[in-house]
């Protein structure tokens, strides 16, 4: 896909990313041509189940994947006029943490257990901003206070194991925010946390967004978490984007059978639970073969001949609402695409 619409407000433009993993069993086609824009100041929710390619796509932007076995077969990611995929390691190092921050899922394994939190917090500051020691310490305490850690100054000398899970994730957020990045990529940042702690972190992110105004990519498998935060949501399956829309449109008027299935699989906290859950039959896709048909076709209740022959591309079906499906789910007829 060429760069046709050069949206002025897009801070990050990702085009046709393809990622493969060479494994003993064969080539895993993890990501098969993903394109998206991240607009200035927006929160883009990326929803998908394990193996959908959501994390791998975002990690590839900063070359955080082990290569090999991973291989970025094609694609570009324009950020500030530069293509991240083609940057040298040295140039990329200046982007990581400085301009694009990353929060990982598991705060236990992503902090170094033998270094103090203060040291890990200030690593970026020393490297990127060339601050003096006392400036750095002052800024680090400021950051810990910003993410709501009490007695921030004193806690700089503590090690990660002295913090609870929720506090560690706050430290991770503080590290990601240290250099005031324009883009924050959050990879399931609350999945490992308890629900009351998750609520604390979500509240914190909402508040930080208002104060700092950065653009956020929020990766999650939980449709509930992004419902209250995202501006737009894209749904991934088998290494493809299958649907993308504004948040209320996506939840209120889902057009892809997979999105519908996901929403119907979830019981609601505010509803009586007597009826049968819909669920989605079948198993997640096998990514070992080159995709040539719709990845969801084997599990799709609406699948017809064309679905097993051609892979549908994303197509606009409403204002900013795109879906990759041959079947018009509301009309009950095939879509006449391209």
């Amino acid at each position: 896909m060429a760069l046709t619409s050069l949206d002025e407000s897009a801070i990050l433009q990702v085009r046709d990313i393809q990622i493969r993993f060479k494994t003993q069993e064969g080539t895993v086609h993890a990501v098969n041509g993903i394109s998206f824009d991240l607009n200035e100041g927006e929160l883009l929710g990326v929803v998908g189940e394990s193996g959908s390619g959501k994390s791998v796509t975002m990690m590839s932007l900063l070359k955080l994947l082990p290569m090999p076995p991973a291989e970025i077969a094609s694609g570009e990611a324009l950020f500030n006029g530069r293509d991240l995929i083609r940057l040298s390691d040295e140039e990329l190092r200046r982007v990581r943490g400085r301009e694009i921050g990353f929060i990982f899922q598991d705060p236990m394994t992503s902090l170094n257990p033998v270094l103090t939190v203060g040291y890990q917090l200030t690593e970026h500051l020393r490297r990127h901003l060339g601050m003096t020691r006392s400036q750095v310490r002052c800024r680090a305490a400021e950051l810990l206070a910003l993410v709501g850690i009490p007695q921030a100054e004193a806690r700089l000398d503590d090690y990660p194991h002295q913090f609870s899970g929720g506090m560690r994730q706050r430290v991770m957020i503080a590290i990601a925010l240290a250099c005031d990045p324009k883009v924050l990529i959050a990879d399931e940042p609350t999945t490992a946390l308890d629900v009351t702690i998750q609520a604390q972190i979500l509240e914190l992110i909402k508040q930080l967004r208002q104060e700092l105004g950065m653009s956020i990519i929020w990766i999650t498998h939980d449709l509930g978490v992004v419902a209250g935060m995202a501006n737009r949501v894209m749904v991934m399956y088998g290494g493809f984007v299958v649907e993308r829309a504004g948040v209320s449109e996506l939840y209120g008027n889902p057009q892809h059978p997979y999105t519908r299935g996901l929403l119907e699989s979830l019981p609601r906290l505010d509803e009586e639970g007597d009826e049968h859950l819909q669920g989605i039959e079948g198993q997640p896709p096998n990514l070992l073969s080159q995709p040539s048909s719709c990845p969801f076709a084997p599990r799709c209740p609406y699948a017809f001949e064309r679905c097993t022959e051609e892979n549908p591309l994303l197509e606009e079906v409403g204002d900013g609402h795109e879906v990759a499906c041959w079947w018009d789910i509301d009309g009950g007829v095939p879509r006449h695409g391209r």
Binding site: A199, L202, G224, A227, Y251, G252, L263, L266
Partner: peptide, 12 residues
């Protein structure tokens, strides 16, 4: 109960 996110943007 109030901390559990619900997949409904309007309600959230």
């Amino acid at each position: 109960l109030s901390a559990v996110p619900i997949h409904d943007p309007e309600l959230e």
